[in-house]
Amino acid sequence: MRKGIRNTMIVGALGAAAFTGGTAFAEGGSNKASSQDNPLVQRGCVIRFDTQSRTGTTVPRIHSNSKHYCVGVTAEPTVDDQGRLVVRTDGGDQPVVSIAVSPDETLTAKGITCGGSGGTGKTVIACYDRNGKPVRADSPTIHGKYANLWLTWTTWEK
């Protein structure tokens, strides 16, 4: 057998071994096959940046009413010393499956994008402008009457 064909067959066999039931498994990971019976927990909340303190800093808050529910967030968001948004959730011992942080059209028009880190009881969210410069979650830049950050967590129920 030619060397190129043998190498292709070996790579193909290794690739096939890495997939079981359509799910890829990373070395040392805790990957689970997809199933409608998986014990997944959904959390979600809208954080609004429409409130300002007397000194002019923006005060992020949970936006919840008859049209917007906040599920699984345990306290009002805070801002850490680096200007990142900190959101606390229940289920702190549940492994994270995914986190989505989505700026709405008001923040997007300002060129603000955000990303989350963590997710097991506490998520830290950093925001940036069009040039990649950090935007503090308590800055006047992020403030807006309808400026919303949509958050979604999917975790594995233990």
Rank of each mutant, 00 (worst) to 15 (best):
G115A: 12
T74D: 06
Q82I: 04
G115C: 06
H63V: 09
N65W: 05
R136N: 08
R136S: 14
Q42A: 15
A126P: 01
V96L: 15
G56E: 05
P60Y: 02
H68D: 14
K67W: 12
K133Q: 15
I125R: 00
C114N: 03
S139L: 03
A100N: 13
R61S: 11
T141H: 11
T89R: 04
R88T: 08
A100S: 13
Q42D: 15
G144A: 08
F25D: 09
F49M: 03
T89W: 09
P60R: 01
R54N: 14
P60Q: 03
S64H: 10
P77S: 05
P134V: 01
Q36S: 15
D81W: 06
G119T: 04
V71D: 13
A109P: 08
F25Y: 15
R48P: 03
T78C: 03
D93F: 07
D50L: 07
V124Q: 02
P140H: 03
N38C: 05
I47R: 00
C45Y: 04
G29I: 08
T58N: 05
A126H: 02
A26Q: 13
Q36G: 13
T51H: 10
P60V: 01
T23K: 07
D129C: 07
K110H: 07
I47V: 13
I47H: 00
V86L: 06
Q94Y: 09
S34A: 14
